[in-house]
Computed example of a mutant assay.
Amino acid sequence: MYSGVAYQGSSTRDRTATLFGQTMGLVAMTAAFFAAGAYAGRHLSEGAVIVAWIAAFVALLIMNFVARRSSPAAVVLLAIFGVLMGVASAPTLYWYASTNPQILWQAGGATALFIGVFGSIGYLTRRDLSAVYRIAFFALIALLIFGIVLIFVRIPHGSLIYAILGLVVFAGLTMGDFQRLRRSRGLDSAPLLAASIFLDVLNVFWFFLRIFSGSRN
């Protein structure tokens, strides 16, 4: 009996480790396709960028439907999503790279540290973070509304406030996503988990970019 329990525990740990490796490998793949898209789209017009944003959103929606049916198809869609997000982000990244590339390095380093800390907390903690994740999700909706308000209403230090609040929200989302990664059992969930973690990384990067660029003004 004890050997059976030990075997089941070992099997669960091996499956979790395999899922972690696959998911993070897919995150790295998505980041590589993002970089390729950002390079290819660095001179695109504003209209093309908007189309890329919409297409990326559509690709993500389709991936949510096909992920459980076909993992290879989900991986392909994840790669397409990465390219489209890179294209959509290209003009902004190119502008920073041309004017002050040091800010990109600072934002990238801060993002790596942020994801490393809160990802580790989410992955290692035994406390159920589902409530934190739900609160962060609804806070994200409120943050989006606040961002729309900032477009039309000038608020002192509004951009900095928005970025700091965004980091707080994505601290919760990052912890929740990494806990989902540890608790998931099916290997077919890897593409969707990778998409969620990649979006965490990307949004955190944008928030730090906003903070560091604001500090130079």
Rank of each mutant, 00 (worst) to 15 (best):
S184C: 08
M63S: 05
D200I: 08
D188S: 14
G166I: 00
F138C: 07
G21F: 11
S10F: 14
A6G: 02
A88T: 01
N64H: 12
G176S: 05
S45K: 04
A56D: 09
S70K: 05
V153A: 10
W105N: 14
I211W: 02
S196Y: 06
N217L: 11
V169L: 07
E46L: 14
T111G: 07
G176P: 00
L144Q: 11
L187Y: 08
D128Y: 01
L19D: 03
I197V: 05
Y133P: 01
A88G: 04
F198K: 06
A59I: 03
F178A: 07
A52I: 01
I135S: 06
S196F: 04
A28C: 06
F57H: 10
T30G: 08
P191K: 01
A32Q: 05
V87W: 06
F152V: 12
R210D: 12
L199T: 12
M175V: 03
I155Q: 04
L144W: 13
G214A: 04
F33A: 05
T18Y: 12
Y2C: 14
I135C: 09
N217C: 00
A36T: 06
R42E: 00
W206L: 12
F152E: 11
A31H: 00
A35I: 11
D14Q: 15
V117G: 06
R42G: 01
N100C: 05
F212H: 00
R126M: 11
Y162H: 13
S159V: 06
F198L: 09
L167E: 00
R13C: 11
L84D: 09
